[in-house]
């Protein structure tokens, strides 16, 4: 240990760093702080630190009182923020201030009152001495010889084989995490004559309910029953659709002959990119925009991709009306909905 009183720092010789060869300059003269020479300054610093700790203690107690006393259901108006939960704000501010002041107090103490003369410590060399290295090599060699690891080839190979296999069951045991894909990604609960109903309110829809330029977020009529039975939202994630009505004169193409009903087109709501539900429908341009990655589809032209990272058009659901005049599906989708997958083809 060297307190840097000498002019030659550790690791230098004649003003040159023995490792890097760079010039080394001695540490400059240490400038004493006010608190080092003036007892009144030291006293002042002491009081400042103590004040911070004292205020901190008060804040912490205040935070507990606020937690108990300030109602959690009242919003108070705080000028730039608007109405804020009174309990949250008061507890947070007092607790935060309390913690913060412990920190500033400790640092102020260290900076003003603890010694500020830099000291120097020698680094040990990272590499061991040649003797130690050689001795270590010797230990390894002797151990290897004693075990016969190099000698018994059969043992070595069977051991390596067993060790390579042992983690495999741990992976295999994960098998029952989930079912096989099967045809799940290719099917939805849409089928012939399933009625289209409004999402969230589940009412059947008549064609005349949708004006040109209109948009309806819809689901199959049997969705609620299926969700009840399956206890999850999986089918909603595949069967959600949007219905739009475009003046038939403006429909350039669609995915199948007669899949619309008088200009009412049903498209999957699930983006073919990574599966966000999309209904950002722009009725004048007939574009459908995904808010996640901005893939844009032209619903007047078979739902083809006109912009963005999606590679596939939006699948169209063929629709018609039933005897009572409600919109129903002609069949399920004719291609898998949602993002691509390896087996999709």
């Amino acid at each position: 240990m060297n307190e840097l009183t000498s002019n030659e720092p550790i690791g230098s010789k004649d003003g040159i760093d023995v490792v890097s060869g760079l010039p080394v300059y001695p540490l400059g003269h240490h400038e004493p702080r006010r608190a080092d020479i003036d007892p009144r300054a030291a006293k002042r610093a002491e009081r400042q630190v103590a004040l911070m700790f004292a205020v901190s203690a008060l804040s912490i107690v205040g935070a507990i009182i606020a937690y108990i006393k300030v109602p959690n259901t009242t919003l108070i108006y705080v000028p730039p923020f608007g109405p804020v939960n009174a309990n949250h704000l008061s507890v947070g501010l007092l607790f935060g201030l309390g913690i913060f002041l412990i920190g500033t107090g400790a640092i102020h103490w260290a900076k003003k009152l603890m010694p500020d003369v830099e000291v120097s410590e020698e680094r040990h060399t990272y590499t061991s001495s040649p003797e130690d290295k050689a001795a270590f090599g010797q230990v390894i060699r002797e151990g290897k010889e004693a075990s016969g690891f190099g000698e018994y080839k059969l043992i070595r190979r069977t051991l390596l084989g067993a060790m390579a296999l042992f983690p495999l069951p741990l992976i295999v045991f994960l098998r029952d995490l989930g079912p096989m894909p099967g045809t799940k990604l290719r099917e939805t609960i849409w089928e012939k004559d399933v009625a289209l109903v409004t999402d969230a309110t589940y009412r059947k829809i008549r064609p005349e309910d949708i004006p040109v330029g209109g948009l309806v977020n819809a689901v199959p009529a049997n969705l609620l029953a299926v969700e009840e039975e399956e206890g999850n939202l999986n089918q909603r994630g595949k069967a959600s659709i949007i219905l739009v009505r475009i003046d038939p004169a403006n429909i350039v193409s669609q995915q199948g002959e007669g899949w619309d009903y008088q200009g009412i087109l049903a498209y999957s709501k699930i983006c073919t990119h990574v599966g966000c539900p999309i209904s950002l429908y722009q009725q004048r341009t007939h574009h459908l925009l995904c808010p996640c990655h901005q893939s844009t589809f032209d619903l007047s032209d078979s739902g083809n991709v006109v912009f963005g990272p999606a590679a596939r058009r939006m699948p169209q659901l063929p629709i018609t009306v039933d005897a009572e005049g409600y919109l129903v599906a002609q069949s399920d989708f004719h291609e898998p909905i949602g993002p691509s997958f390896w087996e999709r083809g």
Binding site: T198, R203, I205, R206, E208, I210, P211, L215, Q283, T285
Partner: peptide, 14 residues
């Protein structure tokens, strides 16, 4: 009314 590019939400569906 579906102004600009906003679609119309008719009184029957909403």
């Amino acid at each position: 009314t579906g102004p600009q590019n906003m679609p119309v939400f008719s009184d029957k569906t909403i």
